[in-house]
Design a protein around this nucleic acid. Sequence first.
DNA 1: AGAAATTTGTCCGTATGTATC
DNA 2: AGATACATACGGACAAATTTC
Lengths: 136, 136
Amino acid sequence: MPTPHYGQPRYRTIADELRHRIENGIIQPGALLPAESTLTAEFQASRGTIRQAIAALREEQLVTTEHGRGTYAHTPQHKSRIDKEIETETLQRQIPADPELASLFEVELGTALFEEQILTRRNGAVETVTRLYRVR
Amino acid sequence: MPTPHYGQPRYRTIADELRHRIENGIIQPGALLPAESTLTAEFQASRGTIRQAIAALREEQLVTTEHGRGTYAHTPQHKSRIDKEIETETLQRQIPADPELASLFEVELGTALFEEQILTRRNGAVETVTRLYRVR
DNA sequence: AGAAATTTGTCCGTATGTATC
DNA sequence: AGATACATACGGACAAATTTC
């Protein structure tokens, strides 16, 4: 079995197709892409090639991949609109580092971290909760 | 022959070693790295693993590769400029609502929430972790 | 100029490890 | 605990770009 790749490489063609689906909402923002095994079947390509295509999308910041979970499509929302209807509430406190934060900050599990929590409300209902962590 | 990778993956170890050589001038800035075949012999790893290590360095902007030519080490000027920049990493995932979030959003405990996590790094170290939650 | 050698690029198949559901 | 999904690693084959002779 030869492996010709005249012109455009296969993994790039696949990446282009997946990008198209994400940008056109065929794959919803935040949704999981089909599993590698599924894509393997659909594109009739080896898993390595599929992974190469996904790696290309990852470099474009178009998707993120989580071990054992899957690959998520990004939301193309770069809207920095400031809505005046939105009320915010801010709260500051200290919390112990959970395993993930401890790992990210490279501190011991349970180390006190500085946390700022910002609520945004629309019509009274909480719309988003933002938590910002820093080492103290 | 099994292919265990307890702890640190092999390609990362190799990438670390090559990074060390570049940063310490063992490989001169602008110089060619050893060929993949040479590295394969030195590290006793498959070509794929060597290529993965080099790909990691490429993502760090520490080297560039040219087809048929080789991989060049970057100049320290370039590197230090990159290091002064603040890098961000974004991750999107779904997580179950903890008690506080459930209360704020007025949903059942454990309801799947949409989470976007943004890391900011300065010189490689995580400076802040921001987590933004929404109901989906 | 041309052929051969060198070096990176693409693709496949397989096996096993690790994280998540 | 089992199933599913991504991660790592090996090996082989052929393509394409560059350098060398």
